[in-house]
């Protein structure tokens, strides 16, 4: 699986503040879902702003398809055509009078024809399941709806990589489920996704790859099962192992789950394991 976006030795400090990025290395693999896990205040948003060229590092490089991305006007514009970003607070992104108008903003900036923009807006709204909100003004939407509109605004530009800052923050469980279903739909279209979160259970449920981020550096990166099973690395990042992963490991250790069977990733998988345990108990009696 090829690397589409790579950060090498990034250093960055906010004026008057400590070092937000301290020699950070990160790779985003094409067609994969990467969770960047870190505690609150670890600098995850700063990292995303580097990955889409909004912030320039004091030292280090960001490579897009192996080539160093430029920080000039044209370089940044080309970069943002390929790397979409959805901010944590949707109100920071929504500015237009209606949902459809807001979603049309990005595609119009790509210089597309009006017919193509209308088509893309329709597709993005359908993909995020918010077609019925097309003419609503942003201030008449719930927080979860605003989040999906903000994502639709980036999706309509059809970036190669979509960066999402804390996509589940502030959402109730149903809102999170809706959002993940919509993102699953995008992934089906071959999009590469990278998102920041401090929710290890979300990362385990949904990510292919995981990067642990603390003190301005990625201390561990790899496939989700390997990284999230590394207790020492998780402790160093002020995180804990996901519940379902621990449940699966326990099931393996007591012979309830064979070594070649996958660990439970969703609640339904965990419940199925409990059913299996119950059946085994019955058969032993």
């Amino acid at each position: 699986m090829g690397v589409i976006l790579e950060a090498q030795g990034l250093h960055y400090a906010y004026p008057g503040g400590g070092e937000a990025l301290a020699g950070l290395d990160l790779t985003v693999r094409r067609g994969r879902r990467l969770a960047i896990l870190g505690a609150n205040g670890a600098g995850k948003t700063t990292l995303l702003l580097h990955l889409n060229g909004t912030l320039a590092p004091a030292r280090g490089h960001v490579l897009l398809d192996g080539a160093a991305a430029g920080y000039g006007r044209a370089g940044r514009a080309a970069w943002r055509r390929r790397v979409g970003l959805v901010l944590q607070a949707p109100d920071d992104q929504l500015f237009a009078a209606s949902v459809a108008e807001d979603v049309s903003f990005g595609p119009l900036n790509l210089g597309l024809s009006e017919a193509e923009v209308r088509r893309r807006v329709g597709e993005a709204l359908a993909a995020l399941d918010i077609a019925d909100l097309a003419e609503r003004p942003p201030h008449m939407l719930s927080f979860g709806q605003k989040k999906r509109v903000a994502i639709a605004g980036a999706v309509a530009m059809r970036p190669d990589i979509l960066l999402l800052d804390e996509p589940s923050a502030g959402l109730d469980p149903q809102g999170t489920a809706h959002l993940l279903a919509a993102l699953d739909h995008l992934r089906g279209d071959g999009a590469t996704l990278a998102f920041t979160t401090h929710d290890v259970d979300l990362a385990w449920t949904w990510a292919d790859d995981v990067a642990l981020f603390t003190a301005g550096r990625v201390v561990r990166q790899g496939d989700a099962e390997t990284v999230l099973a590394d207790r020492d690395a998780l402790t160093a990042t002020r995180l804990r192992p996901p519940f379902l992963l621990e449940l699966g490991q326990k099931a393996r250790s007591c012979g309830l789950l064979r070594a070649d069977e996958p660990l439970p990733r969703r609640s339904a998988d965990g419940l199925a394991l409990l059913d299996r345990a119950e059946n085994r108990n019955h058969s032993q009696i």
Partner: peptide
């Protein structure tokens, strides 16, 4: 920052119905 991520070029063009 949010607008810049969507290639804001100084003009807030949108398509109205």
């Amino acid at each position: 920052t949010g607008l810049a991520a969507r290639c804001f070029d100084g003009s807030l063009r949108t398509l109205s119905p």
